[in-house]
Design a protein around this nucleic acid. Sequence first.
DNA 1: TCAATCATTTGTCCTAGACAATGTATGGGT
DNA 2: ACCCATACATTGTCTAGGACAAATGATTGA
Lengths: 309, 309
Amino acid sequence: MSSETVFPVRGLPIASVERETGLSKDTLRVWERRYGFPTPERDANGERLYAPAQVQRLLQIKRLMDRGHRPGKLLALDDAALQALDESRPEASGRPGAPPLDTWMQLVRTHDSDALQRALYREMVKRGLAGFVQDTVAPLIARVGEAWSRNELGIFEEHLFSQHLEKVFRTVLANLSPQQGSPRVLLTTLSGEEHTMGLLMVEALLVVEDVYPVLLGPQTPIDEIVRAAQLKQADAVCLSFSSAYSPALAAQGMRDLRQMLPAGIALWAGGYGVKAIRKPIDGVCLLPEFQDLYDCLARWRSEHGRQPA
Amino acid sequence: MSSETVFPVRGLPIASVERETGLSKDTLRVWERRYGFPTPERDANGERLYAPAQVQRLLQIKRLMDRGHRPGKLLALDDAALQALDESRPEASGRPGAPPLDTWMQLVRTHDSDALQRALYREMVKRGLAGFVQDTVAPLIARVGEAWSRNELGIFEEHLFSQHLEKVFRTVLANLSPQQGSPRVLLTTLSGEEHTMGLLMVEALLVVEDVYPVLLGPQTPIDEIVRAAQLKQADAVCLSFSSAYSPALAAQGMRDLRQMLPAGIALWAGGYGVKAIRKPIDGVCLLPEFQDLYDCLARWRSEHGRQPA
DNA sequence: TCAATCATTTGTCCTAGACAATGTATGGGT
DNA sequence: ACCCATACATTGTCTAGGACAAATGATTGA
């Protein structure tokens, strides 16, 4: 083995940047052409090599786009202006009675696994599952995501946090595991969406409402979703999209699925990713907020004449 | 919703085909150019529209490629030859004394969730965790993978199986959760490897050996693995590779990680993916079989003078 | 104030060429 | 018979700039 394996890469190739940022190769190239950013080096073969600092900045831009800013503006800004924008918090969405998020963030920051695990579990027991999901977990995930985009947290802390959260949900759900209930809802994500936390949160909310959930895990192709829904006699299919998923792809995927799914089976979609979808999709129920899930469920029940037990 | 669901799916756009098949847009275009397949229609705007039947065939080709066939051959074949190839079994690998795998496969095939869940849990209790992992779970995963590649099982059944397996492991591990133990082992995968089942199996094996595992979830960048190992004071980092991960990439990744990781922290690697790595890597302990994990652990303990409790 | 129209922004698709990485076959030496 | 190096074939990904439609913002009129 050659000992001169230099690790500090001069930059990441375009495919890695696509994977890291979620921005397509086409988008990266067209941004460079139109806005003059990013400005990757080239390797001996003329292929782009993105400096790590620029990848960080792309992540920051992506995050700000998710908050509603437009690419054209963001890409014209310099570092300082970008930083200023990033630090302007949208607003302290301190709902009254909400738990002190800063305390939680401190636990994440110090990666104190045991304390975090206990605290999460205690909070769930204290507030109840629904309140825990809406008032604690959802804001916390947002905060962790923001902190990560500001480089205040590393991937390590984010992963650790996710693992503990997942453990809490799995523990609770393992002891609830319903054998029946209605409607029967199939939970999954489309190919390319690998985040399962949204599915676990939705499963938790549904289980306490006496819904029978079928958790399929992430990344199911469309025709398999259709087959699964029929074989499991699902009344509805519920998809989850994270903010990383391209809204256009999500909309197209749901149109594809709606077309192949029997009309009797409802199609719901939740997660941060659907907030970016403005246009309603025919025959699809979009659930940008948790509350919408309850409304949607209630509507289904009234239409099908079934009441919760 | 209209009952006369017309099915004029003239075809899926290229982005949908990419999502469904996992073949990149570039690959789809270059196949069309080189091999004359697929042959998408064009919409009014000149954009490709793939017929559903061709998408199915692309999936079949993809499966055969995973079995080792080369695209150039497959794309030249007609439907019949492709089907014949698809149905040719590699061989039935039946170890004597193993549990009746066919019975298990039947449960997976019929997607009887409740029965499968109960059966898995019962088997774990009956055989013990280590025996369950080695003699039941590992062969079953292999069988399911094979069956999928022969198109006898769909993604749906595979996902459902994974979910139930994961549930069993999480349930068991939740009630074991150690607060101490030695060595301290960090469990994760490199970017691009998204399979977590291997990590859960290793965690299960380690926990009963009084090891303190830190589960980090999949896809951690190398510098974050290093940071995590230091902050969590890990004695070892254990990576998992599925067979889908390119052996060359895996080897390179481990060399990179070994270089950045303090010498005092061991590096282990398990999973089907390491079986394909022939050359030993300096300072890395390759564990192609489960037994190797025990050997490796015993060696670490003797070298560090610590015995299991 | 709201709705309709026009203008701009923005992501994705197109073509066709190039090349590196990987896999396979061939040759020569133990 | 085995192994290693070299030559050849295969295959995925990258490049370039042009084009266009869907989404968004601005402007006008009722």
